[in-house]
């Protein structure tokens, strides 16, 4: 018997974006206040999991045809690259750089290389979480 989950599917389409943008917010909040790549990644993964629950694994894989292992690899390379960048300019590994810029709309903004590292963490967390969930889900 097929369950009627119209309401869940309809809501999930909206709630996915709400959760996703909240994840982006948490990600950028991360440097000075609680948040960051790890939590942002988990929240994003939970948004995708909501889609998987509302629809099913195959539909979501068609919707987001991503090989999550590549996401992990790209995240790792980004994180390592940010950390290793300082080696090439003669500073110890993991030294970070930041400065203040005046951007249109945003005004005075601090741009930080740590955010790139955090983006790497974000990708790794999304990739690992989704790989685990997909692998377990497929076995049914």
């Amino acid at each position: 018997m097929k369950i009627n989950n119209v309401i869940l599917q309809f809501t999930a389409k909206f709630v996915f974006f709400i959760i996703f943008f909240f994840a982006v917010h948490i990600f950028f909040a991360g440097h000075y206040t609680p948040g960051g790549g790890f939590v942002g990644g988990l929240v994003t993964a939970s948004a995708i999991v909501l889609l998987i629950i509302a629809f099913d694994l195959n539909t979501v894989q068609k919707l987001l045809p991503i090989n999550y292992i590549y996401v992990v690899a790209v995240g790792l390379i980004l994180a390592l690259g940010t950390a290793a960048f300082s080696m090439f300019v003669g500073e110890p590994f993991f030294t970070h750089f930041f400065d203040y810029f005046y951007l249109p709309l945003f005004g005075k903004t601090s741009l930080h290389t740590a955010a790139l590292f955090d983006l790497g963490v974000y990708l790794v967390v999304v990739g690992v979480t989704m790989t685990i969930i997909q692998t377990i889900g497929e076995d049914e």
Binding site: I69, Y70, I77
Partner: peptide, 8 residues
Amino acid sequence: FFGMILLF
């Protein structure tokens, strides 16, 4: 680093 690129 080589471990990462071997994931591809």
